[in-house]
Design a protein around this nucleic acid. Structure first.
Length: 272
DNA sequence: CGCCAGGCTTCTA
DNA sequence: TAGAAGCATGGC
């Protein structure tokens, strides 16, 4: 991949193993929206970004070199060689098939609080409704940003009463959001510090939040805290693991378990 | 109407 | 300590 700084934005030429639709709409993030012209639009932190994919490249519309280095390079995990990951996990035949199907997926390095909160909302829920709740959360408590809203901070949400959260229609998850917001904003759960801990310690800490069990913790580790070896097991992955892997991921995939998980999740759901 | 949705907490044996 | 029930809401 070659990075070109142009007047209309930052262009990623020959962006291999990077398919926008697969990456932005595979269930790891809930706030990227397709545009009518094939582009995608989303907000990360306090920055709104529009993305367009043409033949071999991807344009980060309007971004400059400083944006690229301070934010987008990390967010899209562009320092990782996914071709190398695919080669490694493809030592296993079953993973080779899944990786081939999902070869354009990248793991997004999302903001820790947004990730934790989003996956708390995701439990026992379906993706359209998850997106709806998160959209209302941002519209009600986030700040205006371009044509949309930022994800509200833990501090902001910690102030909210039960009645104020009611319009989210988050159901039993509202109390979990409050507890997470309080623990994160008070520093009782120090999200920034967690990425420096061993993964198991970080996981244990996350699970002190009400409504955070193994699955939500693992999603937060993987998508929000940079633990690429985290392996979230939802109903789909559990089914695949039981049916095809005797419950255990092959050794060749262990260092990249989170990426392998996305390939398996993607291919399992594709068949549906 | 019943079932299910990228689960977790609580209750029960 | 394992297993099932209960949990809000909405789409089908």
């Amino acid at each position: 991949m070659k990075v070109i700084y142009r007047d209309d934005g930052v262009y990623l030429e020959n962006a291999e193993n990077f398919d926008l639709a697969a990456t932005l709409d595979c269930g790891q993030a809930f706030r990227w929206e397709p545009l009518t012209d094939g582009g995608w639009q989303g907000i990360v932190g306090s920055r709104q970004l529009t993305l367009r994919q043409d033949g071999g490249g991807i344009l980060l519309c309007g971004a400059d070199k400083a944006d690229y280095f301070s934010l987008w390079k990390d967010y899209f995990d562009l320092d990782r060689d996914y071709g190398e990951v695919i080669r490694a996990v493809s030592a296993d035949e079953r993973l080779a098939r899944a990786a081939a199907a999902g070869s354009g997926i990248r793991i997004l390095r999302q903001q820790p609080w947004e990730t934790l909160c989003s996956f708390i909302i995701s439990q026992n829920n379906n993706i359209p409704r998850i997106k709806g709740i998160i959209s209302r959360l941002c519209g009600l408590f986030g700040e205006k940003c371009g044509t949309g809203y930022t994800f509200p901070s833990a501090e902001r949400l910690a102030e909210c009463s039960e009645e104020e959260l009611a319009p989210l229609r988050a159901g039993f998850r509202a109390g979990y959001i409050s507890d997470a917001a309080r623990k994160v904003s008070s520093g009782e759960v120090d999200l920034k510090g967690l990425s420096a801990l061993p993964m198991d310690a970080a996981r244990e800490r996350l699970m002190t939040v009400r409504g955070v069990g193994p699955k939500v913790a693992d999603c937060t580790l993987l998508f929000g805290l940079g633990f690429i070896e985290a392996f979230p097991q939802d109903v789909w992955i559990k089914r695949v693991m039981a049916e095809s892997f005797n419950g255990r991921l092959p050794d060749c995939a262990l260092p990249y378990a989170g990426i392998a998980q996305q390939y398996l999740f993607y291919s399992a759901r594709e068949k549906k």
